[in-house]
């Protein structure tokens, strides 16, 4: 199955794009129907949409800039050199800390994970990395805090971190 990864990755990106297009079509149709039914309400909806976007924009831009530097510094070779199959507990901890830095969409996370696996990282460490990559985001925290406050944000990320460790040990125990 692995040699078809490239083709399937292409399919996944297309599927993601289709989902995104579905959103665009839905938003477009929604706007047309809304406009026909009530122009004033539609204008209000657009105003609200812009206001909430503009409200969160500074945090988003800051996160993107931090993400750029982080990902430029951390390369797959560097990462797999510290989370090899023999790295054990420490490797799992390092992997989860690296994964926690930011929230990354799956289509970047999985090719990275698969490259790490090929470069000699262990299953347990990879599981910790993938799970924290998807669920725990320290760099994205300012955005999350703005929406949910500090306590809920720390709680969600903390629980997701602990849970990722459990996932790692179960997967490592069964597959490793």
């Amino acid at each position: 199955m692995r040699k078809h990864a490239g083709i399937i990755m292409g399919m996944v990106i297309i599927t993601e794009n289709i989902m995104n297009e579905v959103f665009y079509v839905a938003a477009g149709l929604g706007l047309v129907f809304s406009w026909v039914k009530d122009q004033k309400k539609t204008k209000m909806a657009l105003k609200k949409a812009w206001k909430s976007f503009e409200n969160i924009l500074p945090q988003f831009l800051a996160v993107l800039l931090i993400l750029g530097i982080m990902l430029a510094i951390l390369t797959p070779q560097q990462i797999s050199s510290v989370i090899g199959g023999e790295s054990g507990w420490t490797g799992v901890l390092v992997a989860s800390m690296l994964g926690s830095i930011t929230l990354i969409p799956g289509f970047i996370a999985f090719p990275l994970a698969s490259a790490l696996l090929k470069n000699g990282a262990g299953y347990m460490q990879i599981a910790a990395f993938v799970s924290t990559l998807m669920m725990v985001g320290i760099v994205t925290m300012p955005v999350e805090i703005k929406f949910f406050g500090k306590k809920a944000t720390y709680l969600r990320n903390g629980l997701a971190f602990v849970f990722s460790l459990i996932v790692a040990f179960v997967i490592g125990g069964i597959l490793g």
């Binding site: 990755m9 994970a113 597959l175």
Partner: peptide
């Protein structure tokens, strides 16, 4: 859509377990 992709790059057992 991610699950398909995960299965192809990480293998089915990993994907289903996770």
């Amino acid at each position: 859509p991610m699950l398909l992709f995960e299965a192809s790059s990480m293998g089915l057992p990993f994907t289903l377990l996770r």
